[in-house]
Nucleic acid binder design. Structure first.
Length: 422
RNA sequence: GGAGAGGUGGCUGAGCGGCUGAAAGCGGCACCCUGCUAAGGUGUUAUACUGGUAACGGUAUCGAGGGUUCGAAUCCCUCCCUCUCCGCCA
């Protein structure tokens, strides 16, 4: 969420951001609503000031056992006017809020302006794309042949795009989670947290999933609770409403959680295999930092995510997402894409974003730079590190061998207890 | 699920219709004092919105939302959360 005053003072900039993002939000009402609000506010506050003053006088008169009946009658009328004006203000503020909470973040100056994902900028590539002297199989064939995944079982118990990992497949997932968490905790200095997988409405609002993206979330009507689409949601909101001190920053958290996404609007897309699931595992990193350091922290965060892919020796590339492809709350976002030999595609395994104060303002996460300094919003960042299913695709397809077996990346061998899946 | 207690500033914690944006303490800041120096004294110290170039005003905020009243932290209603006990269950 952007600051109301910022929107007012930088209206052209906000409009430009909305346009560059290909966002459909209509800003045309904003200026008049904002002016209307302040007009009403001036009126009602004058009346309230009068009421406060006269109420004092009434108290004084009563104390002196005088007759305050005339003033009380007068104020009764003022009270009615205040009620009417307050109602008008409520309506105007409601309309304003609808707009304000749906305005996306302003892209950072280094975010390329573009009109589609084709305009994303490849920042770097790492690792060598292997060449096979046999025909590479897609991961679903490899997984089925080796008994790592029960696709039908997942569909039977929940529906399409739900899968069940079985046997060494399940252990591979667990090995990856342990490997990633250990790496972030021991090498990168993060604190592990294990948050709730279900959150309330306020929490979903805090990170920007609501109000715009409700249809993408699983929801329990009975309790008005949501299944998390990413650990970012509970972990970022862990500090919602907090006043931190400058010395506490930066705070680094890492968490494993399952992620639940309805993928509304993506029906029929990537239906085969592990490419797009309603439920998947992910290890996430979340940072709370001093605004002055957030762009350095963003680059460090990217490196922490890259470390996972490098350790797994998977070829990948880093994309700087353009304005049309970047997430609602992000000012800048790198996507990490792993190359998958079997399906011959780059697959997104991580998004590494800087939200600046956008989420902190929604979730009210502040800090004081000095002991008696004014409160400021922290900057929040997060990155997958990494999403499991597509990482597993990368491993299965890139490490497959002519006989159908799959070599285990060196760093996973100790977690998995073997160097080959066959 | 049943019974009770409670939610107040950066923190602890009073207040229970007007003199309370809010006592006291802690913490912070400024200055002063001091041959008891991790001591003492004095002052100061919330946030948001809004008006104003500013100085400085106004309004709101005591879990959230309604209500009663000239006036609500204080009374009433609804909801949320926390704690204790009981029940149930991993």
């Amino acid at each position: 969420m952007l600051d109301l005053k910022f929107i007012r003072d930088n209206f052209d900039k906000v409009q430009e951001a909305v346009t560059n993002r290909r966002d459909s939000i209509d800003l045309s009402q904003f200026t008049s609503l904002d002016a209307e609000r302040r007009e009403y506010l001036a009126d009602v506050e004058t009346l309230k000031a009068q009421r406060n003053r006269v109420s004092q006088e009434i108290a004084q008169i009563k104390k002196e056992k005088g007759d305050a009946e005339a003033k009380i009658l007068e104020m009764r009328d003022v009270g009615t006017q205040i009620k009417e004006l307050d109602e008008k203000i409520r309506q105007v503020e409601d309309a304003l809020y609808q707009i304000q909470t749906r305005i996306p973040n302003i892209p950072h100056k280094s975010t390329p302006v573009g009109s589609s994902e084709a305009d994303n900028k490849v920042e770097k590539s790492w690792g060598e794309i292997r060449t096979f002297d046999f025909e590479a199989k897609p991961h679903w064939e490899i997984a089925e042949n080796l008994g790592l995944i029960d696709f039908e079982g997942g569909a039977r118990v929940a529906g399409s795009s739900f899968v069940t990992f079985t046997g060494r497949g399940a252990k591979l997932a667990r090995a990856l989670i342990n490997f990633m968490i250990d790496l972030h905790v021991e090498k990168h200095g993060y604190t592990e947290v294990s948050p709730p997988f279900v959150v309330n409405r306020q929490t979903m609002f805090g990170t920007g999933q609501l109000p715009k993206f409700e249809e993408d979330l699983y929801h329990s009507d009975l309790d008005d609770l949501f299944l998390i689409p990413t650990a970012e949601v509970p972990v970022t909101n862990l500090l919602a409403g907090k006043m931190l001190s400058g010395e506490q920053l930066p705070i680094y958290y890492t968490a494993y959680t399952p992620c639940f996404r309805r993928e509304a609007g993506a029906y029929g897309k990537d239906t085969k295999g592990l490419m797009r699931l309603h439920q998947f595992d992910k290890v996430e990193m979340v940072k709370f930092v001093d605004p002055e350091t957030s762009w350095d922290e963003h680059e460090k965060l990217l490196k922490d995510a890259e470390d996972v892919l490098q350790a797994l020796e998977l070829p990948y590339r880093v994309l700087n997402l353009c304005t049309a492809d970047i997430g609602f709350s992000a000012a800048k976002c790198y996507d990490l894409e792993v190359w998958a030999m079997g399906v011959q595609r780059w697959l997104e395994v991580s998004s590494c974003s800087n939200f600046e104060s956008f989420q902190a303002r929604r979730a009210n996460i502040r800090f004081r730079r000095g002991k008696s300094a004014k409160p400021e919003y922290v900057h929040t960042l997060n990155s997958s590190g990494l999403a499991l299913p597509r990482t597993i695709i990368g491993i299965l397809e890139n490490y497959q061998q002519p006989d159908g077996s799959v070599r285990v990346p060196r760093v996973l061998q100790q977690f998995l207890g073997t160097d080959v899946l066959k």
